[in-house]
């Protein structure tokens, strides 16, 4: 199945978290409610496309493109 990262999603696009590729970043994201199988939606991008804003578990979170690349979604 075709898998991409949060960084590849367009504004308004949704995805389901499948895998974390960086253990340290994943700990922070888990704590912030980005759990495996959680649905995320890219809501907004800052100028120059970085950082990215996502909606997860009913609130908004921001992360840099570099960090978004480590979260694979489906």
């Amino acid at each position: 199945m075709y898998i991409k990262s949060i960084a590849d999603l367009q504004v308004g696009e949704k995805g389901t978290i499948k895998e974390f590729q960086n253990e340290e970043i994943s700990l922070k994201l888990l704590e912030m409610g980005c759990l495996p199988n959680a649905e995320v939606e890219v809501t907004q991008k800052a100028p120059f496309g970085d950082p990215i804003c996502i909606r997860v578990a009913d609130y908004q979170l921001s992360l840099r493109r570099r960090e978004a690349h480590t979260v694979l979604v489906q």
Partner: peptide, 11 residues
């Protein structure tokens, strides 16, 4: 060390 920017955006 690395630099993170994982941050809550309050309403």
């Amino acid at each position: 060390g690395k630099s993170y920017f994982i941050m809550e955006l309050p309403n």
